[in-house]
Amino acid sequence: MKLLRRIHLYAGLFLAPWVLMYAISTIAMNHRELFREEATSNPQWQKRSESRFSGVLSTDASIDQRATTILAWLGQDGAYNARWQAQRGALVIQRQRLIDPLRITYTPSDGRVVVEGQPTRTSALLERMHRRRGFDRDQVADDIWAFIVDAFIVVMIFWVISGFILWWQMKVTRRIGFVFALGGLAIFAFFAAVL
């Protein structure tokens, strides 16, 4: 029982930043209307720099190969999303950084590389953290984040199970505990049935 209490506590302390991030970002995402003004009053993308790519990219290269080459040339390796915009004849790369995401547009016809950034918005940062997943990417940091998210899932289930065991040991709280546990379950079940 002592070990159970210790794991319950230490896991809680270690994962406290994630619990707070998920809780606060959920409120922000649940009230996007409140942050809409903040979002629209700022321009979406602002030009940061413009340069000419001096290297050579094979015409046979895939979109991912081109994107990773441009990112490496800019010193911006990391998670990204890239697509070819046929109308503009440009490769558009979304460099998915948590704090400062970038949009990089490469036009092969003249070698122009335009880097754009967004003004910092707390609600958008929170949402990016909430939605971040990592196992599909090649970066170590993304894998670690994804691993912690998985650990968070396991620990959440552990908190529930250990919490129930610890509660059951405390005879004096059993009756009121039942009221809260059943109350929560009844409200949840109601919503699951009607929504």
């Binding site: 997943r133 998210v149 908190w159 009121i176 809260f180 079940a189």
Partner: peptide, 29 residues
Amino acid sequence: RRLHLYLGLALTPWMLLYAASSIPFSHGR
């Protein structure tokens, strides 16, 4: 202590939902 306990008990279904649903989010592929 009581607040921590009773809050945890009441929030259990949501915690289980968010934990279980995070698995397909994290391993969608």
